[in-house]
Design a protein around this nucleic acid. Structure first.
Length: 484
RNA sequence: GGUGAAGUGGCCGAGUGGCUAGGCAGAGGUCUGCAAAACCUCGUACAGCGGUUCGAAUCCGCUCUUCACCUCCA
């Protein structure tokens, strides 16, 4: 029952069997953040989703080369030709310089991603670190007749590239302009032409020398230049947010394919948005939920779990109530895993092969994490049932642990480690707590033996008030600290 | 105006021609001194109107509603 990996390709708008260009190796490029503010839930959805994509492909035995850029050149706050550099603006607001802004928010980004269990990309190139590569790409486009210079600016000539707009379906440039909101620029040949290189106006801080004078790269250029540098002229997968299909990804395709004459990307993947009350969460709107604030209330892994309970191509509506519902389910999963690890040996068995097949099929079907999670819950239910009835035999118990380690842990990343679940806290204060708890539970045990339930319940209630939950199970009394 | 999505039970959220999604919440039960946990049972959902079909939430058409993109945005 082996299925193969199918990926929904935004370019063909169908699911296609994934076959890497070079057998055994998958090249993946995902648009990274522009670092001028703390990451929000929308970033989390995107990078958690692609994290699972990469983890699953590695699980399948592919060697994945994963590149994710850091955009540290602030593109403009308005349209391509107006407004202020975003990073420069933030630097002005924070009374510092652009480089410090970029570095500070880059660190902040990785801090948040680490807490979400997002594995770091193999290469995380910055736009400012690849200015020569970008200039070279512009020169190549001028040489091949796909770009032209005009007063220190260099534009891509959309008419010189057949198929511009094929990703977004925006192929009729005339119709596009009719209702468009971007004012025409006199120095462009065609209103749809986009900037490859921009002349630095007075006061612009982030600028570099180029054959066309002092300036800075256009907003689509870095991804093409860095993707080609590290992954080759044709890559397997390019991922990003849906809002980047047009113009960003269409422009990337145009400038890359015009330069190389080769297909740029074989599978385009676009993840959907996080919404709040049905409206997109975005930096420019003021409705975004900062991850650091969210982590004050919720375990980062709960957020990860919440994200993966919906499909990456579906919008995900944010609400505290929805995350709380996820939290309860998440805790149930952790509890069951812990119970499995501590369970005594019995004689029960489970049909592990069926659970293997189901979850593999789900993940092979365009990374269907919600279905994968539902399979894990079916498994959890069967597992708890078996443990209720006296436990699993040694082999099944081992396979059950492997199952959760592999799918909930290694692939989906929604399971806490054994150490975290079993060891609790370490150190002097934890040992003291253990000793004190042992005394209290001994007193409670004596009270219960004497049928003095008033006393035993009082001990339990008072502990619960302080965040320590005591449960009487078949295996004996257990206690755990609950997060408030 | 153009380009693309989507409307599923109290809530979140999969599926997509016949066969249980799953989670949360709720009801009943088993277990327990009681709780908690776990397990068992239950809820007759697929925006509306037509059509295709032996059979449609799933395909087609129309209508209504929502969202994204067309300006930076994961």
């Amino acid at each position: 029952m082996s299925s193969s990996l199918a990926i929904y390709n935004s370019l063909s708008r169908t699911k296609e069997l994934f076959e890497p260009l070079h057998p055994g190796i998958a090249t993946v490029y995902v648009c990274g953040p522009t670092v001028y503010g703390h990451a929000h839930l929308g970033h989390a959805k995107s990078y958690v989703s692609f994290d699972v994509v990469v983890r699953w492909m590695r699980h399948l035995g592919l060697r994945v080369k994963y590149v994710q850029n850091i955009t540290d050149v602030g593109h403009l706050t308005d349209d391509a030709d107006e407004g202020e550099d975003k990073i420069q603006k933030q630097a002005r607001l924070e009374k510092t310089e652009p480089m410090e802004i970029a570095q500070y928010y880059t660190r902040s980004f990785y801090e948040d991603m680490d807490r979400l269990g997002v594995q770091r990309p193999n290469i995380a190139p910055t736009a400012t670190g690849h200015i020569p590569e970008q200039i070279a790409l512009v020169e190549r486009l001028i040489e091949t007749g796909h770009a032209y210079e005009s007063d220190g600016n260099v534009y891509f000539d959309v008419n010189a590239f057949a198929g511009y707009g094929k990703l977004s379906g925006r192929t009729d440039q005339a119709a596009l302009q009719a209702g468009g909101r971007v004012a025409e620029r006199s120095d462009k040949r065609n209103p749809s032409d986009f900037a490859l290189w921009k002349k630095a106006e007075a006061g612009h801080i982030m600028k570099w020398q180029s054959p066309w004078g002092e300036g800075y790269p256009g907003w689509h250029l870095e991804c093409s230049a860095m993707s080609m540098k590290y992954l080759g002229e044709t890559i397997d997968i390019h991922g990003g947010g849906m809002e980047n299909k047009f113009p960003h990804h269409d422009c990337e395709i145009a400038q890359s394919e015009a330069a190389t004459g080769k297909p740029y990307v074989r599978y385009w993947m676009h993840n959907n948005m996080v919404t709040v009350d049905g409206v997109k969460m975005g930096k420019s709107l003021k409705n975004f939920v900062n991850l650091k604030e969210l982590f004050d209330t919720f375990d980062p892994l709960v957020i990860r779990f919440f994200i993966l309970q919906s499909h990456y191509r579906s919008p995900l509506d944010f609400s505290e109530a929805a995350i709380k519902a996820s939290q309860t389910g998440f805790e149930k999963l952790q509890e069951t895993y812990k119970r499995l690890l501590e369970a005594a040996q019995g004689s029960g068995t489970l049909d592990m092969a069926a659970f293997e097949t189901k979850i593999t099929d789900a993940l092979n079907d365009d990374f269907n994490t919600p279905v994968a999670i539902s399979v894990i819950f079916e498994f959890v239910k069967a597992l708890n049932g078996a443990l209720d009835k006296g436990g699993l035999d040694a082999e099944t118990a081992k396979r059950a642990q492997d199952y959760l380690d592999t799918y909930a842990g290694e692939v989906l990343g929604i399971q806490k480690s054994r150490e975290e679940l079993l060891a609790g806290e370490s150190g002097e204060s934890a040992r003291t707590l253990d000793e004190v708890m042992a005394v209290l539970l001994e007193l409670r045990k004596e009270a219960r033996a004497n049928k003095d339930f008033a006393t035993s319940d009082k001990i339990r209630d008072l502990l619960l008030q302080r965040g320590i939950e005591v449960k009487d199970t078949k295996e004996g009394v257990i206690w755990s600290k609950k997060k408030a």
